[in-house]
Design a protein around this nucleic acid. Structure first.
Lengths: 223, 223
DNA sequence: CGGTGTGTTGAGGCACATCAAGCCAGGTGG
DNA sequence: CCACCTGGCTTGATGTGCCTCAACACACCG
C-alpha cells in the first residue's frame, strides 16, 4: 500500500528552509508519511499535494488534527516519537528536514530559532481556532469555516472558480467532529442556499463569499 | 493529558531561565495578566497560584484555551500581540520574562532555543489533545479527563486526598465546551458512582482512580 | 452486468442545551 | 442573633441538533 515512497536525493531550493533539507519523497494517495509511535527523525515540508494528520482511538474513532498543503511544515509538536499518523491525501511531494541538521543549523544561526518559534506560534493559533470551531460552532458554521479556510489555501481569486477539495467526506467529518451524513446534508444545504456549488467530487465553488463568511463567523443563523 | 496548553515543562529551577526573569508581580483573583491585542512584552512564569487563558467572542461565547499553574510559563504562541486574555484564578505570583532579554539569551545560548522549541511543540501537542477532547468525548469523559489532569497537577498522592480545583463551574464548562449544568450533573454523577468526592467548593477527592482513568479513556460507557 | 466505494437522503432516538426553580454558604445590616 | 440578600451550585422539565440506522443514487471497474 505505502511502499512506493521513492526517495529522490534532490536539493530543491525554497525560501523557507534554504539548504537544510535534503531528501525529497514522493507519495501517492494514502501513502504514509509517518505513524504514531515512530521515532521523530525530522520535519517535512510539503512541496506539492496535501497530507492529513490524525489519531485513531482503540474504539475506532478518528480525529483528523490538521490538513497540510504546499508550503506547510508538519512534524512539529512531537517529542521523541510522533504522536499522530500522517499520510497523503493525493499525490504529494515532501522534503524531509532531519531533526539533527535542523538543530545544528539552529546553533549556527540563532535567528532561525526565532523563525521556528514563530512558526510554532502560528501552529498553536491554528489549533486554538480549531478548538473553538469544534466546541462552539454548529454543523453548518463548521462547514462554512472549513470551506472558507480551504478557499484561502489556494492562490488566485476565491469566488466563482473551481477550488480543490482534495479530501473525502469522511476526512472532513473526522476533522470537524461530525458524521459524513451531517457534512453531506449541510453541504447540500449550502448549495441550496446558493452560497456554494458542488460541480463534482474533489472541488467546490464559492458563489456568495459574504454569506459564507457570515455563516462561518457564528453570526449566521443562531436564533 | 491535555490541560496545560500554555503550560510547559520548563522548570522554575532551570538555570537557563533563572537569571533572565526580573520583575515579580502579585495578582489577586481575576486580576488581568494581559489582554488580547496587547503588545507581547514578554512571557510569564507562574510562581504560585493559577491563571486561565481565554478568548471572548462578539456574541458572548467564551472559550478557555488553557489553565496554567505553578511552574508553567504563559505567553507563548503569540506574535506581536497576545492572542487571548489571561487572568488569575486565585491569588497568584508571576515572574515576567521580557521578550527582548529572552531573545538576547537565545542568541548567546542556542541550546535555549532548542528548549523553547520543544516547549512550543509540547504546546501544540496539548492543543491537539484538547481538540480531540472537545469533539470526540462525551460530557462525562471530558469531566473525567479534566479531573485526571487536575489530579496530576498537584504533587503528592492523588487518591483519597483533597486536591485543589481552583476554578469555578463556569470556567470548567467554558474549557470543556459544555454548560455549567452539564458539568454539575456529571460531577454529581461521578460522585454517585463513588469515583470522586466533592467535600467542598474548590476541591475534590479521587476515590477510584482506575475507573476515573477508564472513563477518561473513551472506553468507559460508550454502548 | 453485478460489485464496490463514495455520497445523498430519510426516519427516529439520544445527549446535551435551554429554561426555570430551588439549595446552600457567606456576607451584611438591623 | 436572626432576616435577608447574593452568587455559585444543583436539580428538574422540556426542546433540539446531531448521531444512528437504513435505504438509495451514482460513478467507476472488472
Amino acid at each position: 500500500m505505502q511502499l512506493s515512497t521513492i526517495a529522490l536525493a534532490v536539493q530543491t531550493q525554497t525560501p523557507a528552509m534554504g539548504a537544510i533539507g535534503t531528501g525529497v519523497r514522493l507519495l501517492s494517495a494514502y501513502d504514509s508519511l509517518f505513524r504514531e509511535g515512530d521515532e521523530t527523525t525530522g520535519f517535512y515540508e510539503i512541496l506539492s499535494g496535501a497530507v492529513r494528520a490524525y489519531k485513531i482511538f482503540p474504539d475506532g474513532r478518528r480525529q483528523i488534527v490538521a490538513f497540510a498543503f504546499a508550503g506547510d511544515i508538519v512534524g512539529f509538536g512531537h517529542g521523541e516519537t510522533y504522536r499522530f499518523d500522517c499520510d497523503a491525501l493525493t499525490s504529494t511531494r515532501v522534503r524531509m528536514i532531519p531533526k539533527a541538521s535542523l538543530l545544528r543549523a539552529m546553533r549556527e544561526r540563532p535567528e532561525l530559532g526565532e523563525k521556528l518559534l514563530e512558526v510554532a506560534g502560528g501552529e498553536v493559533a491554528n489549533m486554538q481556532d480549531l478548538s473553538i470551531l469544534l466546541c462552539r460552532k454548529t454543523a453548518i458554521e463548521r462547514i462554512a469555516s472549513f470551506l472558507l479556510t480551504m478557499a484561502g489555501k489556494s492562490a488566485g481569486p476565491m469566488v466563482g472558480r473551481q477550488l480543490p477539495l482534495p479530501m473525502c467526506r469522511a476526512d472532513i467529518a473526522d476533522y470537524l467532529g461530525l458524521t459524513i451524513e451531517t457534512v453531506s446534508r449541510n453541504m447540500t444545504r449550502l448549495k441550496a442556499m446558493r452560497v456554494i456549488d458542488l460541480p463534482n467530487r474533489g472541488s467546490f465553488v464559492v458563489r456568495d463569499m459574504d454569506r459564507l463568511r457570515l455563516l462561518a463567523q457564528c453570526e449566521g443563523n443562531m436564533h
